[in-house]
C-alpha cells in the first residue's frame, strides 16, 4: 500500500488551524487582561467611593451600590417591567427584525441588479453622514408620538448597516461558487438560501451586530422625546424629577442590556466565523 491515496497524504496534509497561542506579554507585571480588570475595578471603586467621600456631590452621582440595588428593585417592579422595560425591548426587537429582513432583501436586489446598485450607491455612501435623528420633528408631525415613529426611526437607522454588509458579503462570494450554483441549476430559492446567504453570512453577521446596536440606540434616544413609556422615557423622566438614583439605575440597565445582547450575539455567531476560507 505505498501508492494508494493514503500514501499521498504527505503532499496534501490537512492544515489544521489550531488556536493561535495567546501572547501573554506582561506590562509592569500584569497581562493585558490583568490591566483591563484593574481598569474596571478602579471605575467601580470610583463610582462607589466618590459620592460617599464627597468628591462628587450626591445630586450628580449616587454610589454604585445604590444604583445596583435600585436596578434590582426596578426589575422586580411589575409597573417598571410592563411600562418601561418590555415596551423598549419590544421596540428594539421589532425595529431589528424589520431592519434585518428589509436590509437583506434590499442588499440582494442591489447585488443582483446593476440599476439598483447605481441608484442606491450614492445614498448608501452618504447615509450615515446624515443625522437621522434630526427627522424626529417630521415624524412627530406625520405619525404622532409612540411606538410607530420610534420603530420607524430605529429601523431607518439600522437598515443601511444591513444593506451594506449584505452587499459586501455577496460581492465577496468566489466566482467558482456562483458558477457551481449555475451548473447545479439551482432555482432562485435554493440559490438564495443554500448558496448566497450562507456564503455572505460572515459579513452579514457584522451587519447584524451593528443593526442591533443601532436599533437599541435609536429606540432609547427616541423614547427620550417621542414616548410616554419605555426605558428611555423612564430615564429622562427620572432626570426631570431629580430622581437621581432611578435615573442611574435606568442607565445601568441600558448598559447591561446593550452589553448582554452584544455578547449573546457574538457567542451565537462565533462558530460561523471560523468556517471561512482564507
Amino acid at each position: 500500500m505505498s501508492t494508494g491515496p493514503v500514501a499521498t497524504e504527505s503532499a496534501t496534509t490537512p492544515l489544521r488551524k489550531d488556536k493561535p497561542e495567546i501572547v501573554r506579554e506582561r506590562r509592569l507585571g500584569l497581562t493585558v487582561r490583568g490591566w483591563t480588570i484593574v481598569g474596571a475595578l478602579l471605575t467601580v471603586l470610583f463610582l462607589e467611593l466618590a459620592p460617599r467621600l464627597g468628591l462628587v456631590d450626591s445630586f450628580s452621582l449616587v454610589p454604585l451600590s445604590a444604583m445596583v440595588m435600585r436596578a434590582f428593585g426596578l426589575l422586580t417592579d411589575p409597573e417598571f417591567l410592563s411600562q418601561d422595560l418590555v415596551p423598549s425591548l419590544l421596540s428594539i426587537l421589532v425595529a431589528f427584525i424589520f431592519a434585518v429582513v428589509s436590509g437583506v432583501l434590499i442588499g440582494l436586489l442591489v447585488w443582483r441588479f446593476d440599476w439598483a446598485r447605481k441608484t442606491l450607491d450614492p445614498w448608501l455612501a452618504t447615509y450615515y453622514a446624515i443625522p437621522t435623528f434630526a427627522l424626529y420633528p417630521l415624524l412627530v408631525a406625520l405619525l404622532g408620538i409612540g411606538f410607530v415613529p420610534i420603530v420607524l426611526l430605529a429601523t431607518l437607522f439600522a437598515v443601511v448597516a444591513m444593506i451594506s454588509s449584505t452587499v459586501d458579503g455577496l460581492d465577496g462570494i468566489p466566482r467558482s461558487v456562483l458558477r457551481l450554483a449555475a451548473v447545479l441549476q439551482l432555482d432562485p430559492f435554493q440559490r438564495t438560501f443554500k448558496v448566497l446567504l450562507p456564503a455572505a453570512l460572515p459579513q452579514i453577521s457584522v451587519g447584524l451586530r451593528l443593526a442591533l446596536s443601532y436599533s437599541l440606540i435609536m429606540v432609547l434616544a427616541s423614547e427620550f422625546v417621542l414616548s410616554t413609556s419605555g426605558l428611555g422615557h423612564f430615564i429622562s423622566n427620572a432626570y426631570n424629577d431629580f430622581a437621581i438614583t432611578d435615573m442611574y439605575a435606568g442607565v445601568l440597565l441600558v448598559f447591561v442590556l446593550a452589553l448582554g445582547l452584544n455578547f449573546a450575539f457574538a457567542a451565537a455567531l462565533r462558530p460561523q466565523s471560523k468556517r471561512v476560507l482564507s
Binding site: S176, V177, L180, L186, V195, P198, L277
Partner: peptide, 28 residues
C-alpha cells in the same frame, strides 16, 4: 444534470462539512 463540472478553484462551501459538500449536488 448529467454533466459534472470541476472548476479551477475548488468550489466548496466553507460552512458545510466535507460530507455535506459532497452531498450538495444530490441535495439540490
Amino acid at each position: 444534470r448529467e454533466t459534472g463540472v470541476i472548476f479551477q478553484e475548488a468550489a466548496v462551501l466553507p460552512w458545510r462539512t466535507v460530507l455535506d459538500n459532497t452531498a450538495f449536488a444530490l441535495e439540490t
